[in-house]
């Protein structure tokens, strides 16, 4: 299962090689090379429209790149359908949370565990509810009736229900109050410390670099910089462009 990395010295779980993705007629990803090692938090930062969300959608199979290769856990998954990648171990928390508004919270979580057997599911459900105790009181409520923060928790809990080995997080802090943003980042750290590999896309570059081990900077579909998180946070160009320093 573990495809040892070719000369990179780590245990690579995800590798993108020269990936090109089109979004309609827009050439959204223009030859992306990227690597995530087991146990890491890797963040993709960049301006609006740089291709961060497209990159995650390409990894989870919602978009298929006509050129390039995606290797997950040693297997070429470039042309594998999204619903099969869930079984392979990729969980994706989409931008804007996208809770099933007309399903109850419990049903949302059950759908997250769609690929699992009923016995495994109840165990995973318990785990998710321990992580998000707030959801326990709301199990029979419709997903659409939750607050933004609760919806984000549900979205993450739902993705964890499939027991992914790689979690893709798209703008988890978007639209949340500063206190909730803090909580979400604490949570990302906690999930990671339990062994989860995370690929994180964030508008909030400062926070993202705080929790991440490494990062990539995307600009108009190309990776222009990659370094350790602290290296990026110290980089003058990054500070000027993404951390709001003049």
């Amino acid at each position: 299962m573990t495809g040892d990395a070719n000369g990179t010295g780590g245990d690579v779980i995800l590798r993108l090689e020269d990936v090109n993705t089109y979004y309609g007629r827009i050439h959204a990803l223009q030859g992306i090379d990227l690597e995530v090692q087991r146990g890491e938090i890797v963040t993709l930062i960049g301006a609006n429209g740089a291709g961060k969300t497209t990159a995650l959608k390409t990894v989870s199979g919602l978009l298929h790149p006509p050129m390039g290769k995606i290797i997950f856990d040693g297997a070429d998954v470039t042309h594998v359908a999204a619903h099969e990648l869930v079984r392979a171990g990729i969980g994706h928390v989409p931008e804007g949370r996208r809770i099933f508004a007309r399903l109850t919270v419990l049903e949302n979580l059950h759908m997250g565990g769609f690929t699992r057997s009923v016995a495994e599911r109840s165990e995973d459900l318990e785990r998710a509810l321990t992580l998000f105790p707030r959801l326990r009181e709301r199990l029979s409520q419709k997903g659409g009736s939750l607050s933004g923060g609760e919806q984000q928790m549900l979205a993450i809990g739902r993705a964890l229900m499939s027991r992914p080995r790689l979690l893709l997080l798209d703008e988890p802090s978007l639209g949340l109050s500063p206190i909730l943003v803090q909580q979400i980042f604490e949570l990302i750290k906690e999930i990671n410390s339990q062994g989860m590999t995370i690929l994180l896309v964030e508008q909030n570059a400062l926070q993202a670099l705080n929790v991440a081990h490494r990062g990539y900077v995307l600009q108009t579909g190309k990776i222009i910089l990659s370094d350790t998180a602290s290296g990026l946070a110290a980089n003058a160009d990054v500070r000027r462009a993404y951390l709001g320093e003049i």
Partner: peptide, 19 residues
């Protein structure tokens, strides 16, 4: 339930592992 999920949002349903 999967049918209701697909009715609501096909992409997200696929991300749940639903065909």
């Amino acid at each position: 339930t999967a049918i209701r999920a697909v009715s609501e949002d096909k992409d997200i349903a696929a991300l749940m592992g639903i065909d």
